[in-house]
């Protein structure tokens, strides 16, 4: 058996510990009592980190797309795709958890909130990215053209997610006059779990992506071996 590399084990261990802490601490510890939100404030530990995770994973994906364009290395393309995949999984989970939360606090699964719409558009962008990849057959052309679209799409996502919601009123906590988790409401008890939760979930995303990258590499190595025989 291959010797375990301690550097690779440490961050996975950290991810597991942080997530255990998030789940146990997030469900058991005291939370501030706010009107409307009540106990659903605990969604902060499970719903909000999905968005942080998604943005970070998609950013990594965009960075590797840029590196691919600089240097035609297939490995960079694999990394970009798998990070985009993991980011989309986080986005879907974020939308689903958000909808469940919205049903209990706003009374509707979908209420046309700018952040809901923005996240739905963000997911549409990346589904289009995957369809684009599948409709190109040549490996190198696929990698290059999808890298171009990935960078382009990520750059247009920034105004969509960070500027537009601020120009309109929103029901979403943290916007306007709603009780929520903005800088003033976020009390130190929430932070105690929230920051570890963000780091933990993001590391989990990186873990998923790295496993899938390794599977992809093994598969392509196997193909090469098959070819040589």
């Amino acid at each position: 058996m291959a010797k375990l590399n301690s550097k690779h084990v440490i961050w996975k261990l950290l991810a597991s510990l942080l997530l255990f802490y998030t789940i146990i601490g997030g469900l058991m510890m005291e939370v501030p009592r706010l009107p409307i939100l009540n106990e659903t404030i605990r969604a902060l530990y499970f719903h909000v980190p999905m968005w942080f995770g998604m943005i970070i994973l998609l950013l990594i994906s965009a960075v590797y797309s840029i590196r691919y364009l600089n240097k035609d290395d297939q490995a960079y393309d694999d990394i970009a795709v798998e990070f985009a995949n993991a980011g989309v999984i986080f986005g879907v989970l974020g939308i689903v958890t958000g909808m469940i939360w919205a049903q209990f606090t706003w009374g509707a699964w979908w209420s046309g909130d700018p952040k809901q719409n923005g996240s739905a558009i963000a997911l549409m962008t990346y589904f289009a990215y995957f369809i684009l990849r599948n409709s190109l057959s040549d490996q190198q052309q696929k990698a290059r053209i999808s890298a171009i679209y990935n960078i382009f799409a990520f750059a247009t996502l920034i105004p969509l997610l960070f500027i537009l919601p601020r120009l309109t009123d929103s029901l979403h906590p943290g916007n306007g006059g709603n009780p929520g988790f903005n800088a003033y409401d976020m009390d130190s008890k929430l932070r105690l779990v929230f920051y570890p939760a963000v780091i933990g979930w993001t590391l989990l995303g990186v873990w998923i992506a790295s496993l899938r990258i390794r599977i992809k590499r093994l598969k392509s190595d196997m193909n090469d071996l098959e070819y040589q025989r």
């Binding site: 684009l132 409709s135 052309q141 171009i148 679209y149 969509l160």
Partner: peptide, 22 residues
């Protein structure tokens, strides 16, 4: 981008909708 791929009319639409929406 779309002109490089096969089903380009559909692709043109789905690639541009999310990018142009903001």
């Amino acid at each position: 981008i779309a002109s490089k791929a096969s089903n380009s009319p559909t692709l043109m639409a789905i690639l541009s909708f999310p990018v142009i929406l903001p």
